[in-house]
């Protein structure tokens, strides 16, 4: 029915326009700028060049890219591993407690992100309460550094992105039919097997969403490593900012951003293609 199809188009038009203007065009612009020469005033020069891309061969970059991927991956894994049991607990709690717990997850968002990161700086400070406590208990020695290292960055990344994992996980677990777990036990499965073969596949969509919701912003982390990390825990976001603000070299920033984009999108694209091939083969 052509009328029906038209209607479908009309309905999706606003969101398509939104995505085009605010997502597709900026991304395209980043890729375009990456092929422009920089001019000394911080703008873009005439013509096209591949020079910026060759500059990405900078010997400092591989370790920074590797650290960015590593920290983001750890952060995502930690958020999922902490998020699943926590969401499970919320979803299984009585309704009133559910609402209270969800509120607790959301409350930090009422405080500005920067302020929260600075608060962590106070918490982890060499003269801070946490440090004194750890020393008093004997876990840390007086010269242990809680701040300005990868662990501090990772800790606060997990703190920041955990709610983004909990929300989709909670939504998936809340919809999960727990009679399925009873059924698995009834058919002889142990708790662990029931979780692995029935529960985790049942909330697969939630896990996928949570991974994306955490991994993508984590890869772009800039404020956290900037404030809590030292020079040895820089991430790609810091380099992008440095090239844009300090060096005023927009093409270089754009090329780094494009590289990050490719790092995220290529594995996802490959995953989709692989899955399509597999289901295509089965059908």
């Amino acid at each position: 029915m052509p009328g029906q199809r038209m209607k479908g188009w009309m309905i999706s038009l606003p969101s398509m326009a939104w995505l085009t203007v605010f997502f597709l065009l900026p991304t395209l612009m980043i890729f375009i700028i990456a092929f422009k020469p920089a001019n000394p005033l911080g703008g873009l020069g005439e013509g096209w060049t591949l020079r910026t891309w060759l500059e990405l061969g900078n010997p400092n970059y591989p370790s920074i890219i590797w650290r960015t991927l590593r920290l983001s991956f750890y952060c995502t894994a930690a958020c999922i591993l902490l998020g699943i049991p926590f969401s499970y607990y919320i979803a299984r709690a009585p309704e009133r407690r559910q609402r209270a717990l969800l509120l607790l997850v959301i409350i930090p968002f009422w405080t500005n992100f920067l302020i929260r990161v600075f608060a962590w700086k106070a918490v982890l400070h060499p003269e801070g309460a946490l440090k004194h406590m750890l020393v008093a208990v004997g876990i840390a020695s007086p010269d242990t550094m809680l701040l300005y290292n990868e662990w501090a960055v990772l800790l606060v990344m997990v703190y920041t992105y955990l709610p983004f994992a909990i929300m989709p996980l909670y939504a998936a677990i809340e919809k999960f039919d727990f009679a399925l777990l009873d059924a698995a036990l009834d058919l002889g499965a142990g708790r662990a097997t029931a979780m692995r073969r029935v529960f985790l596949p049942g909330i697969r969509r939630g896990i996928q969403t949570a991974v994306l919701m955490v991994l993508i912003p984590a890869l772009g982390s800039y404020v956290i490593p900037d404030i809590l990390g030292g020079p040895s825990s820089e991430m790609l976001g810091n380099k992008i900012a440095q090239r844009a603000f300090a060096d005023r070299n927009l093409p270089h920033s754009a090329a780094l951003s494009a590289l990050l984009c490719l790092c995220v999108m290529l594995p996802m694209l490959m995953g989709t293609l692989l899955r399509r091939k597999r289901t295509g083969g089965a059908a």
Partner: peptide, 29 residues
């Protein structure tokens, strides 16, 4: 515990595993 009893249950809403085919469902136990 339920997994060590020689009894099996038909649940009210069947509780079939949605991520498995019918054959896989039946083979589960």
């Amino acid at each position: 515990p339920p997994n060590r009893r020689a009894v099996n249950t038909i649940f009210q809403n069947y509780a079939l595993f949605p991520n498995m085919t019918l054959r896989e469902n039946i083979a589960f136990g």
